[in-house]
């Protein structure tokens, strides 16, 4: 039986007090899994994942990481608690070199572990080694996501959380990013992501949750969810047909 890395119980969260956007969502992530959170626009997916990462105020429920209660911890503490978050946009420091992006994230590690960890990241993402001195803002969208993920992995997190890693990328880069995430999982990292691009996300995910109106409405094995007619029609915006994946934004 795999260890539970993340356990979210009836989470309530929102930017303004009394106006919850997330209204009692519960999910669970086991060690080594890729878990996908899907849902129509406005379902509160992004707020949900940001609340887990300490970026949206939590008003109820609990978040447990590896047995430790991390509910509502401030964002800058999350990294030290073992949760690394990759925001949807502006997720690299554009004027800093690739290597400085990694180094600055390594501040959480003991000093002597930083250089070896950067080396491990270059082995996992060989493209970044070639671009180590390039300002991250000058990279392509796909490579920028690579920097963002490598930066998050610097601290050896127990859980990697990504907010729509495919947002704003051209189709070529979308497949590159999802390929990268399966590689990252192979390296032993547990992943939780929210996605608009349901088809691509379900293709790499183990399990998935569908979020509707701030609650978890469905849970299932990722590969089966795509063909679940109820889920498909109501929440993913397609009719259980071999149509192109994902809804347009």
């Amino acid at each position: 039986m795999a260890r539970t890395v993340l356990e979210v119980r009836s989470l309530e969260a929102g930017y303004e007090p009394g106006v919850p956007i997330v209204r009692g969502a519960s999910i669970r992530v086991e060690e080594g899994e890729i878990v996908v959170v899907l849902g129509p626009n406005g379902a509160g997916k992004s707020s949900f994942i940001k609340a887990i990462a300490g970026l949206v105020p939590v008003s109820g429920g609990s978040v447990t990481l590896d047995g430790q209660d991390i509910t509502g911890a401030p964002a800058h503490r999350m990294v030290r608690l073992g949760l690394a978050f990759v925001p949807q946009t502006e997720n690299v420091f554009p004027l800093m070199s690739v290597e400085d992006n990694l180094k600055v994230a390594g501040g959480v590690l003991p000093k002597r572990e930083v250089a070896p960890r950067i080396e491990e990241m270059y082995r996992l993402f060989p493209d970044l080694r070639e671009r180590r001195t390039t300002p991250a803002g000058n990279l392509s969208g796909g490579q920028r996501q690579m920097v963002a993920v490598a930066r998050a992995l610097m601290v050896r997190p127990k859980l990697l959380v990504l907010d729509e890693p495919s947002a704003g990328l051209s189709p070529k880069f979308v497949s590159m990013v999802f390929q990268m995430l399966t590689d990252v999982r192979k390296a032993g990292v547990t992943i939780l992501l929210v996605e608009q691009n349901a088809k691509a996300a379900l293709a790499i995910g183990d399990r998935a949750y569908v979020l509707v109106e701030g609650r978890d409405a469905h849970e299932g094995v990722a590969s089966e969810l795509w063909n679940d007619p109820v889920v498909a029609e109501l929440y993913l915006g397609h009719r259980a047909s071999p149509a192109q994946g994902g809804e347009s934004r």
């Binding site: 964002a75 800058h76 997720n91 554009p94 400085d100």
Partner: peptide, 24 residues
């Protein structure tokens, strides 16, 4: 230096700096 990198990081994106674990 690390503090210098952290200063640049905060000036470029303070929100991301927090996410990265920098004590702003």
């Amino acid at each position: 230096s690390q503090i210098g990198r952290e200063m640049r990081a905060v000036s470029q994106n303070i929100g991301l700096a927090r996410v990265v674990g920098i004590d702003v």
